Simulated scan of single mutants.
Amino acid sequence: MKIYHLSHTDLDGYACQFITHFYFKNVKFYNSNYGKEINDNFNAILSDIEKDENFEKAIILITDLNLTLSQCEEFNKICQEKKIKIFLLDHHQSGEECAKKYSWYLLDSKRSATKITYDFFSKICHCDSELSRFVDVVNSVDIWLNEDKNFELGKVFLGLIANAKEINRVMFKEMQVYYMFFLLERARKFIDKENSNVLLDNATHFIKKDFFTKDRDDTLANLISNFVVEKLSELKGDFTIEYEGYKGILTVNIGSTSIIGNDFLVKNPDYDFFVDISSRKTLSFRANGKIDVSIMAKNLVGGGGHKNASGGLFSGYKDSANYNYIKAQFLDLIKSKELKKENMNATTNT
């Protein structure tokens, strides 16, 4: 049996996955906001299930996300056809109509999704007192029990996850989830301590440094940059693109483009350029002397800048949580410009 667990991108969503990970080890995690992103993740899950030799034992678990009726109808039909078990644990009242129609849609608006998930699995497996206390902290802030003893610590939990932007969830999905687990595991050690909320708030910076520190101490910013460059170097085959015979890498919302882009090109001399695309449709181009990215930016999106650092706006870009979809858009952009150039040359020659 393998569980494919889709959850929300906030404290409650990651805490649900933390609980699933506590009880089961054969789990693959996905995270989503609402709308089309849920469908994109569901399709990604189906693709992963089909690649699994034991796909007939697959279970799709959705937590802290309420679906629309059309999504329920689509997911239900597909799961029945493929004989995949599906169940949803949620607490958003807006899913009431779905819960009434589908038996696999379990809804309780009086508990956080984290508490629903814990209560569900603890009955099937076993109770755990320490995990239960962790659940109480998340529950207190998620359903806003401001008189609860755990509420102030819950607020720090909330901020800890909301501000954990260090690892890109589009490019490094698995690592990003386990980073959240690391933070939650460290955070729950503060439960029951005196002034626990203040202690955790003070310790947050050092908890993050513990995750990113390897050989030597450094500033958190440098540690994160080194980590990202290392991961990009490990996975560069997945992110590689080509432009007019030059080899480059395409990233998404990577942040600190000048530092990370330059560090990556220095550590990977076989690459000629670095491009990052943001949710705001902006493109950041970086090079290390092998290609003039100001010309590249101009040719692709009418942008410009310096030889080794330029930018532009990809007006036709559609943001997504699916890296392959984003990469396909950029490759289509390159191809369209190449075809336009070929047509212009053909017209000139005739």
Rank of each mutant, 00 (worst) to 15 (best):
K123W: 05
I124W: 12
E342A: 07
A164D: 06
F29R: 04
N322D: 08
K25Y: 13
G35T: 00
I84T: 04
E244K: 07
N195L: 02
F157K: 09
L331E: 09
P269Y: 15
R111K: 15
Y118T: 00
N197Y: 09
L265R: 04
L65P: 03
T240L: 06
A58R: 08
H91K: 02
F274N: 04
A328T: 11
F314P: 00
S320K: 12
A187F: 01
Y23Q: 01
Y102C: 07
S32Q: 00
V293M: 01
N139I: 05
N308H: 11
N262H: 11
G304N: 11
S294Q: 13
I3T: 13
Y23M: 03
Y271T: 04
L6F: 07
V135F: 04
M344H: 12
V135L: 03
S47E: 10
L250P: 06
G289L: 03
T9L: 14
F120M: 05
V301S: 00
L89R: 04
L313R: 12
T251K: 04
F42W: 01
V170A: 15
G245H: 01
F172C: 13
Y178S: 10
L199P: 07
R188G: 12
L283I: 06
G35L: 11
D90A: 04
L153A: 13
N54K: 15
V141K: 05
L300T: 01
I59W: 10
V275H: 10
L183I: 14
D263L: 14
H126Q: 14
K281S: 03
D48F: 02
C79M: 03
K247E: 05
S294D: 02
A113H: 04
S315H: 09
V252I: 09
D263E: 06
K83Y: 06
S140F: 07
Q17Y: 11
H205E: 15
I59N: 13
S103C: 08
T348P: 13
Y30G: 06
I326Y: 13
N150F: 07
N202R: 08
I295Q: 15
P269F: 01
E73F: 07
L107W: 07
G159Y: 09
F22Y: 09
E50K: 03
T282W: 14
G289K: 11
E342C: 13
D270Y: 10
K36V: 15
M180W: 08
K110I: 01
N262G: 08
N268D: 00
Y323C: 06
V266F: 12
C72F: 11
Y325S: 08
D148N: 05
G35C: 09
L183M: 08
K83D: 08
G154E: 02
E50Q: 14
N41S: 08
S7P: 05
G245I: 00
E147D: 04
D119V: 12
N163F: 13
S32Y: 07
L223F: 15
I84F: 13
T251L: 11
V266I: 10
N150H: 05
E342V: 03
H8N: 04
E242F: 11
K123F: 06
V275K: 02
K189H: 13
I124H: 14
C16P: 00
H91P: 11
T204F: 07
E234C: 13
K2T: 01
K193G: 04
I249G: 15
I326T: 01
M175W: 11
K83V: 01
S279G: 08
N262P: 05
S109I: 14
V275M: 02
